[in-house]
Design a protein around this nucleic acid. Sequence first.
DNA 1: ATCGGTACCTGCACGC
DNA 2: TGCGTGCAGGTACCGA
Length: 262
Amino acid sequence: MPELPEVESVARSLAPLVGRRIVNAEFTCLRVLRGDPERMAEQVAGRQVTAIRRHGKFLVLELEGVYMAVHLGMTGRLLLDASRGRHTHAVFTLDRGALLYDDSRQFGCIEVGAVLPARVERLGPDASQVDFETFYRGLRVHRAMIKPLLLNQKFLRGLGNIYADEALFRAGVHPRTLASRLGLVRAERLHRAILAVLWEAIEAGGSSISDYVDAEGRKGLFQISHRVYQKTGEPCPVCGTPIRRTLVAQRGTHFCPRCQRR
DNA sequence: ATCGGTACCTGCACGC
DNA sequence: TGCGTGCAGGTACCGA
């Protein structure tokens, strides 16, 4: 579920956590952990939440010098004061209330350490903040097709399948275009489209396709504004041509064959 | 460096 | 009703 706008919405909805203390942590699913569950629990127990921020698709909880990085994978949720479910894999008891980690597909992960893990730290610039020069330089040095490149977190952090498709559509760029073949004009259009689609989605609280909710259980609304994502066969909002679905680098990819030419 | 395939895991929608 | 298939916001790994 979670791309940059969804993770940003979760981070914002977790604001009430700042200042609270983790009294106890319980990790019950090895698959979603990087590290030993008991050691991780020891590392976070007794610490106060000093800040919460988003780093690409990662949520970073700062706990008085200890970092807890949470990736929501496809179905991960962080929920405040919710009741345990079948797929609750971590429970943080707070001095007031509780925080749960829920993840039916178990593709997410939680990692704790004194520093941010390198694989988190070493991602590309944030997709919602990147300046055009950096973006354009990135396009030139990679030899990949543009869609897989947009999904590559070392190129830009935060974009996922929904917003890559939506941005490419808005910019009129075919998903299989070689990134290095994008000239200034199309690169500028794409850069603007990425920022616009991400900021509009953040405003709308993200996209709730099936199960995404923020920490308070609220759904996002941006799915209403999707123009191509999961619109296979529906008319393109610009030209009326049926939206097509294809696979690009094994990911379902939605585009308008007329507006997005090779 | 990148690609294509596969793998990880559960749930849902679909057709038969 | 049940079963098989394909699909899903994620990343990581392999060999080529």
